[in-house]
Nucleic acid binder design. Structure first.
Lengths: 151, 151
DNA sequence: GCATATTAGTTACTTTTGTAACTAACAAGA
DNA sequence: TCTTGTTAGTTACAAAAGTAACTAATATGC
């Protein structure tokens, strides 16, 4: 009898619940405000933060599959948040970069994210937050050097 | 300029990455082995752990929307993991209970989950795990008494 | 140079999930 | 009893994500 096991204390379950709760709370900043999906916001972030990148580069940095990137890029383009420029030396690559509108959305969502993060952190001690981040990074596979091109 | 903000350190993002990594690693125990989806495993868990329940009760305990429950129950029934028995006094309710096959799957997945959880915990100190669990429970909304019937 | 392989990205198809409308059963007041 | 309302659960439709096959461009070996 496995009468002792509790889903409520199962780490993957707890992680999922916490991720869902915080993700749901944060999405108002990109979804309600700009009609973006999560992947779109992530692509926007990478372009805003690191400048012109190709879809491939974003995918490997953000660990997102190329089809999701492709769809997010198309959606962001339709919203006039980014433009594509074909590379003349290799016409398979397209460098993506944010329009002014895209950049201002990036700025605003980043500010909101920063505040959001700070607000979570205030619920805990600095030490607790440090432990939390450390554990999350470990579990996420960073720290144990796992770099697959996850789908 | 929001050049200081890093997605990698944004808690909702980290939570999501950690949840995805651990969830993906664990799903072999219910998906590969039994062809279940996550919601099915959760429904199976609640029935195995708490005995006969109605779909409604599972939904509120597990915080899962009734349509997801309905689909999971149908799938588990098709796999002969549970049976329905109509309540004679109120024919809207159906008490669900696991078949022997369902119960043995429950037992096995619970064991695997217990081992899985233990193995994550060994990567950290007991104190770190305690902090992690506390933070996750807090962020998930338990502890601040938020009980919405999330969709 | 030309067949073959590789790479970037898109499109098509399938599965899963979200949302809303629906059915059936019961409750309760006029 | 006969509306009206509520509850449990299902079904239908739409949005999103996963998977695989595809196109177009370039690289490579012969």
């Amino acid at each position: 009898m496995k009468q002792d096991f509790e889903l409520q204390n199962f780490l993957p379950y707890m992680l999922n619940q916490a991720a869902e709760a915080s993700g749901l709370a944060f999405q108002k900043h990109y979804k309600d405000r700009y009609g973006m999906l999560r992947t779109e916001w992530r692509v926007l972030f990478h372009l805003g933060r690191y400048g012109g990148l190709t879809a491939k580069e974003i995918g490997s940095r953000a660990r997102v599959h190329k089809t999701k990137i492709s769809r997010a890029v198309a959606a962001l383009e339709a919203k006039r948040f980014l433009t594509r420029t074909e590379q003349p030396n290799d016409r398979r690559h397209e460098t993506l970069s944010l329009t002014p509108a895209g950049h201002s959305a990036f700025e605003e969502i980043c500010s909101a994210a920063q505040r959001f993060d700070d607000r979570i952190a205030t619920r805990f001690t600095a030490h607790e937050v440090a432990v939390l981040r450390k554990c999350l990074a470990q579990i996420a596979g960073r720290g144990s050097a796992r770099e697959d091109s996850s789908i």
